[in-house]
Design a protein around this nucleic acid. Structure first.
Lengths: 229, 229
DNA sequence: TCCATATTTCGATGATAATCGAAATATTAA
DNA sequence: TTAATATTTCGATTATCATCGAAATATGGA
C-alpha cells in the first residue's frame, strides 16, 4: 500500500513545483517548444529549465525532439493533460489583479487548446451541438459516431474511417476545468482542431494556449455546427 | 498565468509527500480515523501525522471532528477522491514483491470504497448493469434515472426522490483507476454503498479500503442486478 | 578553423519541508 | 486531585530540492 502511495506522490511531485507546473501549462497548447523559450516564458534560467525538463522527460511526462542544436519539448501523453485539467478543477481560483489578467482568463475560458484538442466554452458547445444533432451518441467512456455523423464530418473533410484506425481512442471525453462539462478529446477532437486551424476558423494566439475564433470561423461554426461562438 | 500554476502546484504539493499520500489513500475508505491510528498505519510518529493533518485541514482537503480527546480526520470533499483516482491512473504500477501484496492489490481491484461510493470491478459492473437494464441513462456529466430505475431502486429501499433533494450531484461519474471505466459516484453511489453494507451484501475489510462481497451479497447482486461478482 | 548559439552538466548556495524528542495542552478515568 | 491517554506545539536536525554562475558539450554558420 505504501508503494502505491509513493508512486502517487512521485507523480504529484512533478507538478508540485511552480516552475514545472508553468512549463506543463504552456505545453498544454499542444506545441513543442525549445528550452530557451520555455525558460523565458516561465521566468527561469535555461539551466533551471533544463533541469526540470530532464526530470519530466525521464518520468515520461513530456517528450523531446532534437533538431540540430535545438531541443523541442512537448506533451506526449493525453493523460497528463487530463491530470492538469483535473488539478485546475480543485486548485483555488486565481486572484485577478489586472485587466490584462482578466482578459487572458476570459480568452482561455472562451477557447483554448487542451494538448491536442479544443477546450473551453467552444469545446463544450461543439460537443453539445454534435450530441443535439445526433451526430454523436454517448456510451461508456466514449462517444460513438452515428451514420449521420459520418456524413456530416465528411462534408467538412474529416475522414472518420481513417480516424478510427488510429491507435488511440476515437472520441473520448475530457472534463473541462473552466466549463465543468466535457469537451471532445481523442482522434476526432484532434482532427477538429487541425481542420479548424486549416480552414482558418480559429487561430493560435502567440505565447498562449488561447484560441481566437476568426470572423470566417464565426460564420462557419454557426452555419455548419449551429454554434454561436 | 503564473498564478494559476502556483495554485496547481500548491494542490499537487499536498499530495506530493509520501506520508500525506498514504494518509489520503487510507481516508479513501470513507471512514474518519484518529491521529494515532493514521500515524501507525503510515509508519510515522503522531507528531508528524499531526503536522500533515493540520496542513491538509487548513487546505480544506480533509475535515476534523472532535470527540473528547480524540480528533477524527476524514475526507470531506469528493473532488479530492477524484484527484487521487486520477493520479492512480498515471502513477506507475506498483512492483509486487509478495503474495500478500498481490492479494491486497487484487482485493482493491475487485471491490473497494472510493471515498463514499463503490469502486473497482464491482462498481463498474453495477454501472454497466444499471445502464443495460435502462434504469440509468447517460447525459452530459451525469446519469439520469429512468422511471423503471426509480421503481427498481425503491424495491431495494433506496428512495431516489429523497436523494435528488440532496445538495450534491445525484448520480455522477468517477473514473476508476483500476478498471479504466466509470463507476457511479454522487448521492446514488453513496446510497448504494450504505444499503449494501446494511443488507450485508458487502462488508468492510479491517485496515483496508477493500470491500468483501459476502455469500448473501453474491446472491443478491446476481438476483437484483444481474451482476456476477 | 573559428565563432556564435543552444543546451547540458557541475558544484555551490540557499530555501523549504519532513522528521521526531521533549514538553505543553486537553480530555477522561480512577 | 491525580494519573493516563491523545494530540498539539516547539525547536532542532536532517534531507531534499530549486536556483544559477561557470564551464563543458554539441551544433551550425561564416
Amino acid at each position: 500500500m505504501m508503494k502505491a502511495n509513493a508512486n502517487v506522490a512521485k507523480v504529484a511531485t512533478l507538478v508540485s513545483d511552480s516552475s514545472r507546473a508553468a512549463i506543463l501549462t504552456i505545453l498544454l497548447d499542444g506545441r513543442f517548444h525549445p528550452v530557451s523559450d520555455l525558460a523565458y516564458m516561465v521566468g527561469i534560467t535555461p539551466q533551471t529549465a533544463s533541469y526540470h525538463l530532464a526530470k519530466m522527460t525521464q518520468a515520461n511526462v513530456i517528450d523531446v525532439e532534437s533538431q540540430g542544436r535545438h531541443r523541442y519539448y512537448g506533451i506526449s501523453n493525453q493523460e497528463i493533460a487530463q491530470v492538469m485539467e483535473s488539478f485546475l478543477q480543485v486548485a483555488p481560483p486565481v486572484e485577478i489583479k489586472s485587466l490584462k489578467q482578466s482578459n487572458e482568463e476570459k480568452a482561455l475560458r472562451h477557447a483554448r487548446t487542451c494538448y491536442d484538442h479544443i477546450a473551453g466554452n467552444l469545446g463544450v458547445k461543439l460537443k453539445t451541438s454534435l450530441m443535439n444533432q445526433q451526430f454523436l451518441v454517448e456510451k461508456d467512456n466514449e462517444f460513438h459516431i452515428t451514420s449521420d455523423g459520418e456524413i456530416f464530418f465528411n462534408t467538412i473533410d474529416i475522414d472518420t474511417n481513417k480516424l478510427k484506425k488510429k491507435r488511440r481512442m476515437f472520441c473520448s471525453k475530457c472534463l473541462d476545468w473552466s466549463e465543468r462539462r466535457h469537451h471532445i478529446a481523442g482522434a476526432l477532437g484532434n482532427a477538429m482542431l487541425e481542420k479548424f486551424l486549416e480552414l482558418e476558423w480559429i487561430e493560435r494566439v502567440p505565447k498562449s494556449r488561447a484560441l481566437k475564433i476568426t470572423a470566417l470561423g464565426g460564420n462557419g461554426l454557426n452555419e455548419m455546427f449551429g454554434v454561436d461562438p
